[in-house]
Amino acid sequence: MPRMLPYLLLLPATAFLCLFFLYPFVQVAHDSVMRNAAYTLENFTRMAGHWKFSTAFWNTMLLAAVVVPIQLAMALTMASIVTKLQRGRSSILYIFAIPLGISDLAAGLIWLSVFEQSGFLNSLLVGLGVVDQPILLLGYQNTWVIFIAIVLAEVWRATAIMMVILVAGMGLIPKEYGEAADVFGASRWQKFRRVTLPMLKPSLQTALILRVILAFEVFAVVVALGGTQLPVLMSETYHWQFQMQERGVAAAFAMVILAVSVAFTILILRLLHVPKGARV
């Protein structure tokens, strides 16, 4: 029956998602409110009561608040440049996209090799005579260096995914709108601000949601560069699950990350909402 065919074709994927996504999700949600075989909010109180929780929470937020805007600005700039290129466009896209092919742990390790005590940066500083001997950059005395290193690694690693989405989005804007803006007196900046950006909203939505959610889940880069010096929500989740063997508290952390992600997704959807009739 041709009418049933689309549903039949979608069935395997739907079943797969239910089995391997929806079921574990319900399980985690369940775990977060379950303790000693009874429904309780104790997991959440334990989580929130721990001294590292608010540090981890605000570290995560601060990282996202610093990383995502930098990435957005860079991705927009890069996408604008790439879109204008007459030739060599795909080669440049490929080069920009190389960090995307590297796992986040590997990315963290690459930047560790830059910042660690025997790393490239120290060799350079010593070689130039700026310092007498290698200094401990990623120590607990200066977590701000760890923070900067994480920001650098994250920007280096994950800006390209935003750029790729924005390049595709810019390609969808008909050229005539830009020309109309030129003719009607828009400067480059005005054209970008008043025409390109608003018409890019759908792609901006996708790129931002994707990046913000991934920023809340930042983990491997943080662990590689900071160890436990800079706790974030994901590393705490990991810590409670595996070191403390507190499945319920880990699940509570997961629910917090989920809640934050959902809240920001809704916020981004609202902020970048395109009214009906105003779509291209």
Binding site: Y177, A180, V183, M199, V280
Partner: peptide
């Protein structure tokens, strides 16, 4: 000179009426 300094206005074939405004 760029278009904006030429004292012209233009009507495009596909109108180019901005959808977001």
């Amino acid at each position: 000179l760029p278009p904006r300094e030429r004292g012209i206005a233009m009507v495009f074939q596909n109108y180019a009426v901005f959808p977001h405004l």
